[in-house]
Nucleic acid binder design. Sequence first.
DNA 1: AAGTGGTCTAGACCACTAT
DNA 2: TAGTGGTCTAGACCACTTT
Lengths: 266, 266
Amino acid sequence: MSELKGGRAAERKSYVDRAAGPPVYAQVAECLHQQILAGAYRPGDRLPSEAMLVASFKVSPMTVRRAVNLLASQGIVTTARGSGTFVKEVELGTAAFYLQDLTQLFSHEAGTLIKVLEARFCPADERVARKLAIRPGERAIYIRRLLLVRGEPAFYHRGYLVNDPHRPVIEAELEVTDLKGLFQGSGSSLIKHGDLYLESTLLSEDEARLLNLTTPAAGMVLEHILYDFKNAPVSWGWFVCPSRRLRLQTRFGIEKSEWMRDERVR
Amino acid sequence: MSELKGGRAAERKSYVDRAAGPPVYAQVAECLHQQILAGAYRPGDRLPSEAMLVASFKVSPMTVRRAVNLLASQGIVTTARGSGTFVKEVELGTAAFYLQDLTQLFSHEAGTLIKVLEARFCPADERVARKLAIRPGERAIYIRRLLLVRGEPAFYHRGYLVNDPHRPVIEAELEVTDLKGLFQGSGSSLIKHGDLYLESTLLSEDEARLLNLTTPAAGMVLEHILYDFKNAPVSWGWFVCPSRRLRLQTRFGIEKSEWMRDERVR
DNA sequence: AAGTGGTCTAGACCACTAT
DNA sequence: TAGTGGTCTAGACCACTTT
């Protein structure tokens, strides 16, 4: 009666606990997720219809709907109108690498030091002009910086800034080029969005020397173009770091995720 | 009356069109998103309260709620109970790189060819045994493959497979090690989840030779450990490719996104 | 025709924050 | 205390797929 499938399903929770902290829709979602984790529903299987879930969990249709939506937005199930809700096949292609590890580097006030190696005006060459959408020969700002983590050189950053007379250099320094702010998201309300590119590279002699490495050495390049609220490029630059500094990590497929820390469940 | 802010707001849509294709909650979300894009609400600003939105859009509270939820799940706004909904500050750390570009490589039946260089049993050494959670000396399967895209070597893959007697080698070949299936998500219902690691590397002589490169050369390594439904490791391996093969790309911040293609809007 | 997911309503109550 | 977001109900109607 209280069970979802036939009689032999081993459930952890049959009924939702309305007094408990987690909202009901999250409890329903977790219950379904647990059953998928346990293998009660395999990839490709169809879940009970929402009407069934409404009956077995004794909650309203909207609440079941939300639970299913949550699972769908987490990539655990897919829904097909008129036919049902199915456990998603495991796809490697859906995996995503996040930059949050990097963020922590900058939030650690303790051990991060930014050393400005060079900052000067320079006329934009063809390439810079194209990236910053200015005219070749127009004056831009060139900055080279070294990021030290606990005394050790970790990132080498070079970048060009548009020399906007309406945006004084001092402010530009503080806002546009404030790396900490950029990563943590406080400050820099100048920036509306940005494009990022990540690839591996063979470090140049200069880069290797600054990062205390011997050539040949491989590294990661994180290139960025930042745009202001008029969609005009403001900055073009790139971080270079040794391989071991940037090892991205992620998971894919059906994994146990800690609820209460996720998306809209709070 | 029909406007959201005061009198001078330049809106694209004041009223939702209930007859139109996109659901109402998506229209409301898009309307708000457009205003944010246009700079009517800047990062840190507070949006009108949900009660206000209910009144101005003339829709039910639940519908407004859903619209706000959608924006929140897309990282455009954050909500604070008791205080309001705010436009999110732009954070680089929230950026995510997806592997979907890779997927397309494999979906292109046209130009991809998988060449098995070697496949043999081998006793697990200390390292392999640890990764695959088997005993050192136990028999594993070692496979080396080369992926050719339009005749050109693009990925070099090496991996170890657990030699499970209950899972014949033939089947293992077809399912666990089927790279196409792995990326596209069809087949391989053996795999429950996996861990992925991405880093740059200096290619070895062997790797460079197989990929038609001259040393020194930099490349990317995509390491993977796959688990079955008993959470036991099934496979450990890594792809190596030249730098130019894997250039990850993404965007962050407030960007115009094509609705109707997103998350739960369909 | 029956069953499925998808949207939407018009309220209710709650927990929290600001004043 | 008034206003805010957050949850939940018990239905309704719709579009779609399957039988």
